[in-house]
Design a protein around this nucleic acid. Structure first.
Lengths: 183, 183
DNA sequence: TGATTTAGATGACGATCGTAATTATACTTG
DNA sequence: CAAGTATAATTACGATCGTCATCTAAATCA
C-alpha cells in the first residue's frame, strides 16, 4: 500500500497540521495516535511509518505550531496590537489555532528533551519578538526582562481565561491584564 | 473483602491525597486509575467503589488540593512574601505539592463541569486572598483587577519556568516577574 | 521495460485504560 | 446474638492505547 512520494509528503504535512491543532485542543497526552492520523484521513499505524513514534511526531508538531504562530505574530508591529490580539476573546476561544506556548505549557515539563528544546526555542523567539517592539530608550537587558514578565502575564491570563467557568470572570481576567500591560 | 468503616475512610483519604499530588505531577489525563489507586496501596478497581468514576475522583482531588493550598497560603500575610513564595525555585521544583491552579490550568477547559466549577471557586478564593492583602487606599474593584492581573502573572511565570529547558532562563522568568510585581 | 529495492500504509499485537459484575465481610436489626 | 443487608475491595471485561511485523506499490537501475 505504498503511495507516491508527493502524496506521502502531502500526507505527512496533513498529519503535522492536524496534529498541531489537535494537541492544542485536547492536550498531548489527551490525543491518541488514532485521532492524530484519523484527522488526516489515514489509519493510525501510518504514524509509525512517517515519524517512528508518537513522541517524534509531537516534536515535529510542536515545532510546526510554533513556527506557524511565530510567522503570524511577526506581522504585528505595535506592542499594543500584539497584546490586544493575544488577549482577545477570539484567541481565547480558539486554542487549536492559538498560541502553542499557552496551550501546551503545562504538559511540556513531562515531554521529551526534543519537545522541551523546541518549546524553549519558541519562547525565546517570542521574547525577542516582543522585546524588539519595545521602546529603544531602555537597555536591552531591561527590555528582555520586561518582555519576559509581559509574556508570563499574557500566557497566564489566556490560560486562566480559558479555564474558568464564568464568562464574566474570564473577560475580567483578559481586561485586567490588558489594562496592566497597556494593550 | 470489605474493611471497617474507619479503614475505608482512611483509604479514601489516602487515595484523595495521593491523587491530588499525582495529577499535579503527571497531569489529569496523564494519570491512570491504576496509578491513582496503587499509590494508596490498593487495586485499581477500588476507585470505582469509593468514587464511582475517575471523573468524580478528579473533582474531589481538585477540591482537596485547592482547599489544602488555600489554607497554607492563608498563613502568609504580606503581599511581597506571598509573591516571593509563589515565585520561588522551591515552588517551581515541587509541582506535586504546589499550586493546583498552576499545575492543572491547561487541562481544566477539557474537564467536567464539576471540576471547572471547583477550579473557578478556587481561583476566586485566591483573588480575594491576594486582594485582601493589598493597600486599602484604592477601591475594591480596582484592587480586584490588580489582584487578577497579578495572579495571571504568577501563574504564567511558574508555568513557563517549569516548562523551559534552560535553568538560567527559568530563573530569569521568576526574577523578572518578581521584579515587575514588586515581590 | 522488467527485476530489485525501498518506502509507506495496513492490520495484528501486547499493554493499559476505565468500568462493572462478583465476592467477601463489616454493619444492622429482629 | 444470629440472620440479613449494605458496602468496599477484588477480579474479570471490553475498549483504546502505542508499537511493530507484514504486505503492497512506487522508485531505481540494468
Amino acid at each position: 500500500m505504498r503511495v507516491s512520494k508527493l502524496q506521502a509528503a502531502e500526507n505527512r504535512e496533513r498529519i503535522l497540521k492536524e496534529a498541531s491543532r489537535l494537541i492544542r485542543e485536547r492536550g498531548i497526552s489527551g490525543t491518541g495516535v488514532d485521532a492524530l492520523t484519523e484527522a488526516a484521513g489515514m489509519t493510525h499505524g501510518s504514524l509509525y511509518s512517517q515519524f517512528g513514534s508518537k513522541e517524534r511526531l509531537i516534536e515535529d508538531a510542536v515545532a510546526y505550531a510554533i513556527a506557524a504562530k511565530g510567522q503570524e505574530m511577526s506581522e504585528v508591529f505595535a506592542v499594543s496590537d500584539y497584546i490586544s490580539k493575544y488577549l482577545s476573546a477570539k484567541h481565547r476561544d480558539m486554542p487549536g489555532g492559538g498560541c502553542p506556548i499557552a496551550a501546551l505549557c503545562c504538559e511540556i515539563p513531562r515531554q521529551s528533551k526534543g519537545v522541551r528544546d523546541r518549546f524553549t526555542a519558541g519562547l525565546r523567539a517570542i521574547i525577542s519578538q516582543l522585546s524588539g517592539r519595545m521602546e529603544c530608550e531602555i537597555k536591552p537587558r531591561q527590555r528582555d526582562d520586561k518582555a519576559l514578565a509581559a509574556i508570563a502575564s499574557l500566557v497566564g491570563a489566556i490560560v486562566l481565561a480559558r479555564a474558568v467557568n464564568d464568562p464574566t470572570l474570564s473577560d475580567d481576567i483578559l481586561r485586567a491584564t490588558k489594562k496592566r500591560l497597556g494593550g
